[in-house]
Simulated scan of single mutants.
Amino acid sequence: MQISVVVPVHNEQENIESLIAEIAAALQPLYTFEMIFVDDGSSDATLAKLKTAALKYPQLRILHHQVCCGQSRAIHTGVSAAQYSWIATLDGDGQNDPADICKLAEEQQQHENSESLWMLAGFRHKRNDNGWRKFSSRFANSIRQKILQDNTPDTGCGLKLFLRDKFLQLPYFDHIHRFLPAMILATGGQVISVKVNHRPRNHGQSKYGTLDRLMAGIIDLLGVVWLKKRSSLPKITEVTRG
């Protein structure tokens, strides 16, 4: 299996080096892979740290946004540049465990004959966040599942494994990374959730405020509902002559 690992980062200078080392250690013995780190307009030493790491890791590619465009755009930039058909994404804050990429890949290989399996989504069943963040995440996930019926317990988990071509066929909008399972299902794909590890953040701080995330989530949720209602999945058969 060949995997392109896409990691969007913004002001994560303290997490970069250890995260790159962990990804390489997890994947090196098992897979052909590349690491695409997309620096989304960082104002700290993130880009400098990436350049230094590239001297040690030949699998590392660096893409740079001159101004911050957001996590979804950074992911889209990385996926567009990727050379392999399977994409693994994870957050740049170190809370996702790179070893779980192998866990998702192993689950995919158990279904390798299934043409409809387009995504495997990480499920942080034991969150390492404070009580308020846990509550707000559970609340948001329950509302989203009720409205979108995506049967995915944790769409906010940054750790995912999906097909590059299917992702690039989806209509792009900001924050699409939080609704990927619903969008995949709406276009005819299958999504499997897999329990993954979730670690405490050791350095830096979250880029999202609870209120900001809530307001953006409401607007985006309405947009996804609109897109789903205007999509259709035709059943196609080819008519032969005679």
Results as ranks from 00 to 15, higher is better:
110 Q>V: 05
10 H>P: 03
159 L>A: 05
92 G>R: 04
150 D>Q: 14
228 K>W: 00
98 P>Q: 10
237 T>Q: 14
26 A>V: 01
178 R>Y: 12
208 Y>A: 15
53 A>Y: 03
44 D>S: 10
182 A>G: 03
197 N>G: 02
210 T>P: 02
3 I>C: 01
189 G>F: 06
98 P>V: 04
140 A>Q: 11
20 I>P: 05
117 L>I: 13
149 Q>Y: 04
24 A>P: 00
233 L>V: 11
235 K>L: 15
95 Q>F: 03
143 I>D: 02
185 L>W: 04
101 I>Q: 05
134 K>F: 00
92 G>S: 06
140 A>D: 10
107 E>V: 05
69 C>S: 11
104 L>G: 09
195 K>Y: 02
134 K>W: 01
65 H>R: 14
82 A>E: 04
205 Q>E: 08
225 V>W: 12
181 P>T: 03
224 V>P: 04
39 D>F: 01
132 W>C: 08
146 K>T: 07
36 I>M: 08
111 H>V: 03
181 P>L: 05
71 Q>E: 10
61 R>D: 02
185 L>T: 07
177 H>S: 10
168 L>K: 08
2 Q>A: 15
172 Y>Q: 13
219 I>V: 15
66 Q>H: 13
22 E>L: 03
32 T>E: 12
175 H>I: 05
76 H>T: 03
13 Q>E: 14
16 I>R: 04
34 E>T: 09
13 Q>D: 11
232 S>N: 07
197 N>S: 13
11 N>T: 03
142 S>M: 14
88 A>I: 00
240 T>P: 02
232 S>E: 10
45 A>C: 06
220 D>K: 11
149 Q>A: 13
18 S>N: 07
134 K>T: 12
191 V>S: 07
228 K>S: 09
159 L>F: 09
199 R>I: 04
115 E>L: 09
56 K>C: 11
117 L>M: 11
169 Q>V: 03
37 F>N: 00
165 D>F: 08
111 H>W: 11
235 K>P: 10
238 E>T: 12
218 I>N: 07
199 R>W: 09
184 I>K: 02
120 L>H: 00
110 Q>T: 07
220 D>C: 12
32 T>K: 13
104 L>E: 12
25 A>G: 14
109 Q>M: 11
94 G>V: 06
141 N>R: 07
43 S>K: 12
31 Y>I: 06
84 Y>S: 08
183 M>G: 08
24 A>H: 13
167 F>D: 06
192 I>F: 06
8 P>F: 05
85 S>Y: 14
197 N>P: 00
19 L>V: 08
25 A>I: 14
88 A>P: 01
65 H>S: 11
231 S>Y: 10
50 L>S: 03
12 E>W: 00
109 Q>D: 10
14 E>H: 11
5 V>F: 12
139 F>Q: 06
59 Q>M: 14
33 F>G: 07
93 D>M: 08
100 D>V: 12
19 L>G: 00
1 M>A: 15
103 K>A: 12
26 A>F: 04
106 E>D: 15
194 V>Q: 01
48 A>T: 01
215 M>Y: 09
241 R>G: 11
183 M>Q: 13
133 R>Y: 02
